[in-house]
């Protein structure tokens, strides 16, 4: 079975934030929460500027999963790391452990008390029945169950953000690198998947 992965091509990302907007709209993510963000390094330095779109990378050995005190995470057969909001207690541990800053929390109560964690689902919903109303309310759309890939990557105008079967994504990216030259900078892969291209 396919092992789903994200890859952001920093040579192509133009920091348009369409992925961020598409995600927010598709899943009706609540105010104050962004499952995806674009970070620009050396912003304003001509020639050095690089942008990367980042969300949950669905790690192979996910740190969030390891530290969760209530064990609410699970990995699907496609390698997507999902969590059960009915089990989550909003302790914040996954945010402390995550290398990519993916877990987000709605504020619930005084002194920054956290509500149930929300993060990128690779457009694969949650433990509820596929495409049910409950799943939509808690986790957003389940595009994978509809045979589609994550919307952020589908919407990407420069095709900088790639999402899908890790082998296909790697082949696409490798071809690009071969044609344009330079090193393959598949950012985050060594951290998330413990592998280079």
């Amino acid at each position: 079975m396919a092992r789903m992965k994200f890859l952001c091509d920093a040579e192509r990302c133009i920091e348009c934030n369409a992925c961020v907007t598409a995600c927010k709209n598709e899943h009706e993510v609540p105010w104050g929460i962004n499952r995806r963000r674009v970070v620009t390094i050396d912003d304003g330095h001509h020639g050095d500027e690089k942008s990367i779109s980042v969300a949950c990378m669905h790690c192979s050995d996910a740190p969030c999963q390891a530290v969760c005190p209530v064990d609410c995470f699970y990995t699907t057969p496609e390698g997507v790391v999902l969590h059960d909001k009915d089990i989550c207690i909003g302790c914040g541990y996954c945010f402390y452990a995550c290398p990519f800053g993916a877990p987000q929390y709605p504020q619930e109560g005084a002194f920054g008390a956290r509500g149930k964690m929300d993060k990128c689902t690779f457009c694969a919903g949650g433990p509820e029945e596929d495409n049910s109303q409950a799943e939509l309310d808690k986790y957003g759309r389940n595009r994978l169950a509809e045979g589609k890939l994550p919307l952020c990557a589908e919407m990407c105008s420069t095709k900088a953000l790639l999402a899908g079967d890790g082998d296909i994504v790697a082949d696409l990216f490798r071809n690009r690198v071969v044609r344009r030259g330079g090193r393959p900078d598949n950012w985050g892969w060594d951290t998330a998947y413990k592998e280079q291209l």
Binding site: N17, R37, V38, V39, T40, D43, G101, G188
Partner: peptide, 27 residues
């Protein structure tokens, strides 16, 4: 730190390595 249009705690940091250390120490 870089720049990001998204607001949120440490959203402008692409990667933090200490989380994995913390996980190893705690678990």
């Amino acid at each position: 730190e870089g720049y990001t249009a998204v607001t949120g705690q440490e959203a402008n940091e692409l990667i933090q390595g200490s989380g994995e250390t913390w996980r190893q120490v705690r678990n």
